[in-house]
Write a protein that binds this DNA or RNA. Sequence first.
DNA 1: CCTCCTATGTCAGGGAACTGACATAGGAGG
DNA 2: CCTCCTATGTCAGTTCCCTGACATAGGAGG
Lengths: 150, 150
Amino acid sequence: MKQEETVGDLDQSVGYVLKQVQASLHAAMDEVLRPLGLTVAQYACLELLGQHPGLSNSELARHAFVTRQSMNVVLRRLQERGLLTRPAHADHGRALPTELTQAGQSTLRTASVAARAVERQIFAPLSQERQHRLHEDLAACAAAAGAPQP
Amino acid sequence: MKQEETVGDLDQSVGYVLKQVQASLHAAMDEVLRPLGLTVAQYACLELLGQHPGLSNSELARHAFVTRQSMNVVLRRLQERGLLTRPAHADHGRALPTELTQAGQSTLRTASVAARAVERQIFAPLSQERQHRLHEDLAACAAAAGAPQP
DNA sequence: CCTCCTATGTCAGGGAACTGACATAGGAGG
DNA sequence: CCTCCTATGTCAGTTCCCTGACATAGGAGG
């Protein structure tokens, strides 16, 4: 079973190594979040709410790159656990502004520490300067892919 | 509904923008592959077999970042469609070496052209030099994440 | 005022991935 | 030779996410 079999042509694809790093990151995040009783999607939801309180279900879904139906079940589970609150009905429109409870903020703090440690470790092979460049390059691609219509 | 709300702190996370680009790439790939009757996972399987004929189910699963159970159903569907062949039982060991049929190679060529066009477009905002740097940096992270045990 | 049009929340169903478990083939070590 | 140990293929069950559909709230335009 050769492991060092002169890395195939697929490793020459930027998209392939991108997927590879993303898979590693997701697996490592899942490993540290599972003991806390959180999935990666649930953590993403908490982190978004911690930094942008009052986001609605649909807005959270867009920022987490899932459908609003999927985010809906995430929100309901977190609400059952008392980590966040949603008004029963909106005052203006249909959007229900969501906010973290005290327990939610506490859980978020613990999870955020673990998650950021994982991220730091994944990108450790790169110097601070290279990490910054990587961030810039990825952000440029994301911005272009997000609005190619105009 | 402010869209330009001074981009939150999460956009400062490398892992977040990484996920963002990966989601965009996956969505764009799915869009061009679906008319060909292929999912992204099925295309990845064909591409791997095109570049490394004779890979087994487990080896394909590792290179595609899924479990062997998931890859198993992918292989079975592709085999039903006559795009690849697997011996009924292995001569040596239990690994079943898989290979593409003529139809499989033909389908792969069409899909590969579309997929590489998508990838080229996603990373178009970056110069050739920056794309090369991006590839190097991601590969370094992937290599470090793949073997952190020693 | 009335009519589209979009956005949002929600329900129902299906697909794709994962975890857990089992049996088997080959090699390593005593 | 016999005993672990690992790797592989496969079956069963569960969980997560997606697509499709519906009802509703607010705004745009005639």
